[in-house]
Design a protein around this nucleic acid. Structure first.
Lengths: 193, 193
DNA sequence: CGGATCGTTGATCAACTTCAACGGTCGTGG
DNA sequence: CCACGACCGTTGAAGTTGATCAACGATCCG
């Protein structure tokens, strides 16, 4: 599964053999069956996860008992609670598998070691954080102002493959609308073309 | 103005005199009159800014010509486009001053230098990024699911001093509601107590 | 095979927006 | 330094969007 991780870095950087072997020592592999949890609220957020195969999502349950999907993570995505691992920090999210999934886990000491020893990792992490942060800003503005249909279309344009892979009610939850509303939007759009 | 910056770091860490003098070489000071812009879309995002006095906000203008406040930044806050400075990256946000303001600016080379030479800075930056990222996740879920009144109350609870300092229509814009709706919510709450 | 989950459809309802009008205040130029 | 215009917050009335509640068929999986 390390080939997937290495390919991910090699899209923008060049990993040396040295880098690769360092990374092999740091990550541990784990497989999850569909429906299995990687993390639950209250557990320690020891690990960050890189998905090499399958599909994870993170979600919260609000005061009214409703589920809200925060993030989808197919292959080649990172996912973690609080955008990072830490010692002594309790998770607030659920992370579970939508499909049978394989992940590579990294803990905080491992992360710090790579930040120091593998410049490619540090650079990638840094730019990754920034990209995510600005993607979140966009999502915030979008969620505050766009209509349900606009949000759905934006999502389709941005993540066409994800839209096909996740159950409709989870997509609705991610978009902040009810399954009924999403169903109606899709019906309207099917009619319009 | 450096005392404000140093005090900011010293809340959680201990800066040596050495650290302080290093930092003094890296930041440049700038003052902005109320209404003046620090950054406009299309300009290069060369700098990150730390507010030592006054009040900044960032906002976008959407396809329909409407303003949406993304972030408020009073004293002791960092603000930048794309959550970071960079070479060759064009801004997508406006950043302007709500009050007469003084900021300390840092560019990418300066930032990299501090990351390397001042461990306190690196640690603070790292944890700051994570805190922000998870605050954004919370804001996303909140904006997708909470009612206008809940979002207003949450804001009051989280940032009571900011709520008192910004014009009401900007707060409405931040919350993703119309000024009329915010006005009505406030009226209702005044009546209720 | 059977129960649970999922997507769909209809009817009603609540929240929020939009449009319009008005008084108050701020700051700016003459 | 005053007057005037621009902007801000408020209120009312009407219109829209999406949520809620309820029911039903289809499909998936154990």
């Amino acid at each position: 599964m390390f080939e997937v991780l290495f390919a991910y870095f090699n899209r923008n950087y060049a990993l040396s053999e040295q880098d690769k072997s360092t990374m092999r020592t740091v990550f541990t592999q784990r497989t999850l069956k569909k429906g299995e949890f990687l993390l639950r609220p209250g557990e320690l957020t020891k690990y960050g996860a890189f998905v090499t195969q399958g599909f994870l999502r993170s979600y919260v349950i609000d005061a009214k008992g409703k589920e809200h999907v925060v993030q989808f993570a197919p292959e080649n995505w990172w996912i973690s609670d609080k955008s990072g691992m830490a010692t002594d920090v309790k998770a607030t999210f659920f992370i579970d598998a939508i499909e049978d999934t394989t992940v590579l886990l990294i803990d905080l000491p491992g992360h710090l070691m790579l930040m120091e020893k593998v410049p490619v990792f540090a650079a990638s992490f840094q730019t990754g954080m920034q990209k995510r942060a600005s993607a979140k800003d966009i999502r915030i503005v979008n969620s505050l102002t766009a209509t349900a249909e606009e949000r759905y279309n934006d999502f389709l344009a941005m993540y066409p493959t994800i839209a096909q892979r996740v159950p409709q009610h989870m997509l609705a939850s991610y978009l902040g609308i009810t399954p009924e509303t999403l169903s109606r939007i899709r019906k309207l759009q099917a009619r319009r073309r």
